[in-house]
Design a binder for these strands. Structure first.
Lengths: 353, 353
DNA sequence: ATGAAAGCGCTAACAG
DNA sequence: CTGTTAGCGCTTTCAT
């Protein structure tokens, strides 16, 4: 395994100079740099990240903690992050909670990650106060997507507003009996979105003076299968809704299937809409509230990179330069807009075609 | 950042003993080990992976190179890998090629990864001979999924057989005009599956004495959108097929949409089937050839872990113990079975209902 | 512009 | 069973 000493020997210089030349640091004559680069290339030399990291105190790695890898939303955030990272020389360590509490404990409650990464990205998970305290003590940039906490970079959408857009659309069409399909207890525990979307639904219903019919608040677990079961239950109600608003497209798709199986037509008998604008939504002509997922992944990663470059005033001294957007401590916050996308899964109630 | 010396000081012992105690190595009295563990816990000590790695020559990390993170297939392989890794103390470094040649070059043609990981997993990509040579010189376990090369652990399915299963099913139903929707030039370049599935389709057609109608070999790029375009083109043909076999469910779904838009009914007018058994396939009642994706991810990772434990005879000496499955050099190979899943998107041709 | 020397925080060999 | 002594392969002062 050719090391820096081999390169140094090759060009007859010290390892220190080779190191400087290779990293493009100032204080190296152009001629020397050229010779070093040439020799390194010829020998196929690549610096050991371990040794470099140990000596410099960095890892050139960012960690990403996701609840699930296989869900559309998370994979696109990761994609956005990857694309931003590309070319910056940072590698991405992926940690999958997969619903396991133990994994969360090890990652968020010990200093394990603190020694492995230069920055951390946590998706769709609101750290507990203790976890937040711990993360802050690591003294590295932490980014949150779909969550918020003081001192961290945050990127999100207005989840209450998402529900408002959905309910407003359905009400405008003339619906009054609007059911909601959201997450289960587990989902709403420390994932903000399910909770806020449910609240948003209730608030919007109230704003329109509409009743919250018992049984209209269903659990879909953010999966297609869960959405399907929720749809079945809703159709078994004595007074089924004329419209169903699911907090994700995947659940909405499950609902669509339940309706089809129950012999209900969409949208003539029941209107259905979701959230996300999943690729499949356009295929199924599902009305939805679109959110820019990939862009959120890019944005949070850009913030992290900026923080790593020291571009975000760490611990923002008393007289911080006003003007810039929400910038508390070393953190920045950005809320992305969502858009109603009307397709043909929603229509006025009681329609005949 | 509390280090091993702090722990050593705390218990009044040498760092060497603390290191041994912490890692569960033999040669430490139970009492001592207990005191050390206790002190480490109290101080919140976690060993620096960088330093430990530098000293021990390992990284406790495996690298995974994927062409895309957002595709169903890859995310499930990664999920399978994660689940196998969990508890083994290995972290996962995710590298996304994202179609960029430059990324591939850096990862597979330099020794960069060799210094960052203990083992490498490459998905759906057949390394070029040069890349193979390079990878072998790294002298670490390398696993391939959906590809094969001598000296590497391989996990795959019988892609030619997949097409045979599909075509046989359609022929059994009475179809003769069977079109294929596969990858484009780029896909078939060094991804084995698209190429083999196309070959399998041709072979199966020939075996049944069926003609390869010009225009029946379409490009779907393994995406829904691509499948939709392919479906459109097929329906514009003077003599459109009565059945369409797409090499992936996502493309098949695109085809379904194209048919619907063209006013063709499925399966009455045109039968459609895919490959994978994507979650969406069951929702859309799509006939498909199912492959165990998650299990492939688990299996290849298990092989890598076994190799890391030294359980696979490295460089298998001349008189290797016969009997075990395909085991060349330090590599193992495993081919998973695929299953025809008949749903209602396929039916005899010319059906009226 | 370059070199020498001193670590970074661990683990590994070898003593005892 | 435990401690001592060397590094692992770089980066970083501090000289020169």
């Amino acid at each position: 395994m050719t090391g820096i000493r081999d390169v140094a020997r090759e060009v007859g210089m010290s390892t220190a100079s080779v190191s400087r030349a290779l990293r493009g640091l100032p204080g190296v004559s152009p001629a020397t740099r050229h010779r070093v680069l040439e020799a390194a290339r010829r020998l196929g030399y690549v610096a050991s990240p371990q040794a470099a990291g140990l000596a410099s105190g960095t890892t050139r790695t960012i960690g990403v903690v996701v609840p699930f890898v296989t869900r559309w939303y998370f994979s696109w955030i990761v994609q956005g992050a990857q694309d931003r990272l590309r070319g910056e020389g940072y590698d991405l360590l992926l940690y999958n909670l997969g619903g396991k509490e133990s994994a969360r404990e090890r990652l968020l409650a010990t200093r394990y990650l603190a020694k492995r990464v230069d920055a951390l990205l946590v998706l769709a998970l609101t750290p507990t106060p203790e976890e937040q305290e711990n993360l802050r003590s690591w003294d590295l940039p932490v980014g949150l997507v779909g969550a918020e906490a003081p001192g961290f970079c945050c990127v999100d959408i207005d989840d209450v507003g998402v529900s408002a857009q959905a309910v407003d659309h359905l009400v405008e069409l003339g619906h009054e009996r609007i059911a909601y399909v959201g997450g289960g207890l587990e989902d709403t525990l420390d994932h903000r979105a399910p909770r806020l979307r449910a609240e948003g639904w209730r608030a919007a219903m109230a704003r329109h003076g509409l009743p919250l019919v018992p049984g209209y608040d269903e659990v879909g677990d953010f999966t297609m299968a869960g959405g399907e079961r929720a749809g079945e239950r809703l159709m078994e109600l004595a007074d089924p809704p004329t419209a169903i608003y699911a907090a994700s497209d995947e659940m909405a798709i499950g609902v669509l299937r339940a309706l089809r199986r129950a012999g209900r037509r969409t949208p003539q008998d029941v209107s259905v809409m979701g959230v996300d604008d999943h690729e499949m939504a356009s295929f199924l002509d599902l009305t939805t509230v679109a959110q820019p997922v990939y862009e959120q992944g890019e944005a949070i990663t850009a913030m992290l990179l900026a923080a790593l470059r020291g571009e975000l005033a760490a611990e923002s001294p008393a007289g911080s330069p006003a003007g810039s957007p929400t910038n508390q401590g070393s953190a920045t916050r950005r809320t992305f807009p969502t858009t109603l996308v009307v397709r043909s899964s929603t229509a006025p109630p009681g329609g005949t075609g």
